[in-house]
Simulated scan of single mutants.
Amino acid sequence: MLKKLVALPLVIASFAFMSAAHADHHGMKKDIVDVAVENGSFTTLVAAVQAGGLVDTLKSKGPFTVFAPTDDAFAKLPKGTVEMLLKPENKDQLVAVLTYHVVPGNVMAADAMKVDSATTVQGQNLAINTTDGKVMINDATVVMADVKASNGVIHVIDTVLLPK
């Protein structure tokens, strides 16, 4: 059902996420949205970014640090949550959730591990903890860090972050 909501063509990439961030045939890196679309593991996130009207923002100069939940992370939410957030009347709530995943600037994992919190574009803070070699953002585990894009960096997480 969510795939019908996605207006951009989604390429199911058979290559690693990191390769999506490498230079394209014009020698320019792809922006955060292009990297997410090409990867194929972020169809729900891309649909949400589109429904929230944030595509142009995340394609702009930035830089942005995005904690990007995978489709599996969205699937862990209570049934009906994603569909409810994607309704036009819930756009403000959707934008709040999405911007809670974005930190201004280009924060690489090594820098994030030196602090215990970061203020999001949404305005609230994210807790950052390192335990047993794992980096945690609130209750989400970073499963892949430092995926570079032309306008920032993506850290892939296994859980959707919800503002308080």
Rank of each mutant, 00 (worst) to 15 (best):
G53H: 13
G62A: 14
G80D: 13
L85R: 10
T57H: 08
A47H: 05
L98Q: 01
V55N: 07
S60H: 09
T81A: 13
L54K: 00
V102T: 06
T65V: 11
F67R: 09
A47C: 04
T70E: 02
T57Y: 11
T81K: 15
T99V: 00
L58Y: 07
A47I: 04
V95E: 05
T65Q: 09
T65L: 11
F74E: 05
K59Y: 03
P69M: 05
K87C: 10
A96L: 02
G62I: 07
A68I: 04
V82L: 14
G40K: 03
Y100P: 09
K91Q: 15
V82A: 13
T44I: 05
A68N: 00
T70F: 03
A73V: 09
T44L: 04
S60Y: 09
G80N: 15
A47Q: 01
P88Q: 15
V66Q: 02
P78I: 06
Q93P: 08
V102W: 07
F74C: 04
G52R: 06
A75I: 07
L54A: 07
F74T: 06
G53V: 13
H101R: 01
A47L: 02
K87E: 15
L54Q: 07
Q93Y: 11
T44F: 02
F64W: 10
D92W: 02
T44A: 02
V66M: 01
V49E: 01
V82E: 14
V102K: 01
L58A: 02
V66E: 00
L54Y: 07
G62W: 04
D72Y: 03
L86P: 12
